[in-house]
Amino acid sequence: RPRTRITDDQLRVLRQYFDINNSPSEEQIKEMADKSGLPQKVIKHWFRNTLFKERQ
């Protein structure tokens, strides 16, 4: 599967949610997917990777 490119607008949506809650529920992930147009799987990976980077 090719790598998903996240646009600036999509990144802005993800960052807004991450700043509020870095561990979103399934419902919140679905909401983000609707707003950003990204697949839920991509959003889950983005949150996991971003949380890991923040903790380092």
Rank of each mutant, 00 (worst) to 15 (best):
R1E: 00
R1F: 03
R1M: 01
R1N: 14
R1T: 04
R1K: 00
R1W: 00
P2L: 14
P2F: 04
P2S: 15
P2K: 15
P2R: 15
P2Y: 10
P2E: 15
P2N: 15
P2I: 15
R3G: 15
R3N: 13
R3W: 02
R3A: 13
R3Y: 09
R3I: 14
R3Q: 10
T4I: 11
T4K: 07
T4F: 15
T4C: 00
T4V: 08
T4N: 15
T4G: 05
T4S: 06
R5L: 15
R5D: 15
R5F: 14
R5A: 10
R5K: 14
R5G: 11
R5M: 15
R5Y: 15
R5V: 15
I6F: 10
I6E: 03
I6P: 08
I6R: 01
I6C: 03
I6T: 02
I6L: 15
T7R: 07
T7Y: 03
T7N: 06
T7E: 08
T7C: 03
T7F: 02
T7L: 04
T7K: 04
D8Q: 14
D8V: 10
D8F: 06
D8E: 12
D8H: 13
D9F: 12
D9L: 09
D9T: 13
D9R: 08
D9E: 13
Q10R: 01
Q10S: 03
L11I: 08
L11R: 13
L11Q: 12
L11M: 11
L11T: 11
L11W: 10
R12Y: 03
R12K: 14
R12S: 13
R12I: 13
R12V: 13
R12P: 02
R12M: 14
V13P: 01
V13L: 14
V13K: 10
V13W: 12
V13H: 06
V13N: 05
V13A: 05
V13F: 12
V13Y: 11
L14Y: 00
L14K: 00
L14C: 02
L14H: 01
L14P: 00
L14R: 00
L14T: 00
L14G: 00
L14V: 02
R15K: 09
R15Q: 11
R15P: 00
R15I: 06
R15M: 11
R15N: 12
Q16H: 09
Q16P: 05
Q16R: 12
Q16T: 12
Q16W: 09
Q16K: 14
Y17P: 00
Y17E: 07
Y17F: 13
Y17S: 06
Y17V: 07
Y17L: 08
Y17K: 05
F18I: 07
F18K: 11
F18Q: 06
F18P: 03
F18D: 03
F18R: 10
F18T: 08
F18N: 02
D19T: 11
D19P: 04
D19N: 10
D19W: 08
D19F: 07
D19M: 13
D19A: 15
I20A: 12
I20H: 12
I20E: 05
I20F: 11
I20T: 10
I20C: 14
I20Y: 05
I20V: 09
I20M: 13
N21D: 09
N21A: 12
N21Y: 13
N21L: 05
N21W: 03
N21G: 07
N21P: 04
N21E: 12
N21C: 08
N22D: 06
N22E: 10
N22K: 09
S23D: 14
S23E: 08
S23G: 04
P24R: 01
P24C: 02
P24Q: 01
P24M: 02
P24V: 03
P24H: 02
P24S: 00
S25Y: 03
S25T: 12
S25A: 08
S25I: 03
S25E: 08
S25P: 06
S25N: 06
S25H: 02
S25C: 05
E26N: 09
E27A: 13
E27Y: 09
E27R: 11
Q28D: 04
Q28F: 02
Q28R: 05
Q28V: 10
Q28N: 07
Q28L: 06
Q28M: 07
I29V: 11
I29N: 02
I29Y: 06
I29T: 08
I29C: 04
I29R: 02
I29M: 12
I29G: 00
I29S: 02
I29A: 02
K30S: 06
K30E: 08
K30C: 05
K30V: 07
K30Y: 04
K30G: 06
E31R: 04
E31W: 03
E31D: 13
E31S: 06
E31F: 03
E31I: 05
E31L: 05
M32T: 01
M32E: 00
M32Q: 01
M32N: 00
A33Y: 04
A33K: 03
A33E: 13
A33D: 00
A33Q: 06
D34Q: 08
D34G: 12
D34P: 01
D34A: 14
D34T: 14
D34L: 08
D34H: 14
D34W: 04
D34N: 14
K35D: 04
K35P: 00
S36T: 15
S36D: 01
S36V: 11
S36K: 01
S36F: 09
S36Q: 07
G37C: 11
G37P: 00
G37R: 10
G37H: 03
G37Q: 05
G37Y: 03
L38V: 12
L38C: 08
L38M: 04
L38N: 00
L38H: 00
L38D: 00
P39N: 05
P39I: 06
P39V: 08
P39R: 07
P39K: 15
P39M: 05
P39S: 13
Q40I: 07
Q40A: 14
Q40V: 11
Q40M: 09
Q40C: 08
Q40Y: 14
K41W: 03
K41D: 10
K41S: 11
K41C: 15
K41G: 15
K41P: 05
K41R: 08
V42F: 04
V42W: 08
V42G: 05
V42M: 05
V42Q: 10
V42L: 09
V42S: 08
I43V: 12
I43T: 02
I43W: 01
I43D: 00
I43P: 00
I43G: 00
K44C: 05
K44L: 11
K44A: 09
K44S: 05
K44D: 09
H45C: 06
H45T: 12
H45E: 15
H45R: 10
W46N: 02
W46S: 00
W46P: 01
W46C: 02
W46K: 01
W46L: 02
W46H: 00
W46Y: 02
W46V: 06
F47H: 01
F47Q: 01
F47C: 07
F47E: 01
F47S: 01
F47L: 05
F47Y: 04
F47G: 01
F47P: 00
R48P: 02
R48F: 11
R48I: 12
R48V: 09
R48D: 10
R48A: 11
N49K: 14
N49R: 13
N49E: 15
N49T: 11
N49V: 10
T50L: 07
T50Q: 07
T50P: 04
T50I: 05
T50S: 12
T50H: 10
T50K: 14
L51M: 14
L51N: 12
L51R: 12
L51G: 10
L51H: 13
L51K: 15
F52Q: 11
F52R: 15
F52N: 14
F52V: 14
F52I: 04
F52A: 14
F52Y: 14
K53L: 07
K53S: 10
K53N: 11
K53C: 04
K53T: 13
E54G: 04
E54T: 10
E54R: 09
R55C: 04
R55F: 07
R55N: 03
Q56H: 02
Q56A: 14
Q56D: 00
Q56V: 01
Q56G: 03
